[in-house]
């Protein structure tokens, strides 16, 4: 029993589970042997490919190709959904086009002095669009929609957009925030809560939004230093109420012992106020 198992195990690690599984095509190098490792992965020991498809694709060219086609299809689908509604734009103007776009994506819009329009009102809205052509679009709630940089093109040319909510949009990133400068004179309320791709680099270019009164940046997982970012954003937008992040985030409470040591050190310096060291 024992010997065959040991023999099987002898050749096992190199060709079955040894190291990171590479994709097939990344190994092909015209008989030059393996490419030297080029790891961008911080922990190369972990296998990045999950599931049956992943492990099969690392062994068979056609499955790898199939996987690439699938990912290409998804990105194509995203761009298809985020096209500019040029027909509506040309015939009915920017606000109707923007409202049509947002309603198609499952968001909600509100025109001036009107009720909110929800996705189920889309057909009614399109039927009565001559009503809305003259009215400026004031509020857009695109929370959770699959809007990316190209889809935002529908929204950034609205002259009187007051409030824009992009909570939890998976494809809203820093590039999108850089695109918002054309709404600078009108936008008063912006919510980016829970966008997984927004970082502090994108928040830095919100200073174009001069009339912003309320900004929601809560729950942004990609922001590295949340408390500091909040302070800097508040400094950058003095007239704006920034909600979301706790200042004390990432700051650790001192333990009882550490606090006692600090106090003792502070007391040792004559004339120093308790707890604060002069620099």
């Amino acid at each position: 029993m024992a010997a065959p198992k040991a023999l099987l195990r002898a050749g096992h690690p190199t060709w079955w589970g040894g190291g990171t599984l590479r994709t097939l095509s990344s190994q092909s190098n015209f008989g030059q042997g393996l490419n030297p490792s080029y790891d961008l992965d911080p922990n190369p020991g972990r296998n990045p490919q999950q599931g049956l498809m992943g492990s099969m694709a690392s062994r068979f060219y056609d499955l790898e190709q199939f996987r690439e086609w699938i990912s290409r299809f998804w990105s194509w689908n995203l761009y298809r959904k985020n096209k500019v509604f040029s027909y509506t734009l040309k015939h009915y103007g920017p606000s109707v086009a923007a409202a049509h776009f947002v309603l198609t994506h499952g968001g909600a819009v509100r025109f001036q002095d009107q009720e909110w329009l929800f996705p189920q009102d889309k057909n009614q809205f399109l039927w009565n669009n001559h009503h809305f052509q003259k009215l400026p679009l004031e509020e857009v709630d695109a929370s959770g929609c699959v809007i990316n940089y190209y889809g935002l093109e529908n929204l950034v040319f609205l002259p009187s957009l007051r409030s824009l909510r992009l909570c939890g949009c998976p494809y809203v990133d820093d590039w999108c925030l850089g695109r918002l400068h054309s709404l600078g004179s009108s936008l008063q309320e912006l919510s980016l809560a829970g966008c997984p791709k927004v970082t502090e680099r994108g928040l830095a270019c919100l200073h174009h939004l001069r009339s912003l009164r309320r900004l929601d940046i809560s729950n942004l997982p990609a922001v590295s230093d949340k408390g500091l970012t909040q302070i800097l954003v508040e400094e950058m937008l003095p007239n704006c109420e920034v909600v979301g992040i706790d200042y004390a985030d990432r700051l650790k409470l001192l333990s009882e012992d550490q606090r006692r040591v600090e106090e003792k050190a502070a007391a040792a310096v004559p004339g120093a106020p308790g707890g604060l060291m002069p620099t």
Partner: peptide, 24 residues
């Protein structure tokens, strides 16, 4: 650079984070 993960995607490798700072 905006679509870098579509141009330079390698199947089974982590996506690139170009860390673009759109400050002008």
């Amino acid at each position: 650079l905006r679509n870098i993960n579509e141009y330079l995607a390698v199947a089974g490798e982590p996506p690139l984070d170009i860390q673009f700072c759109p400050s002008g």
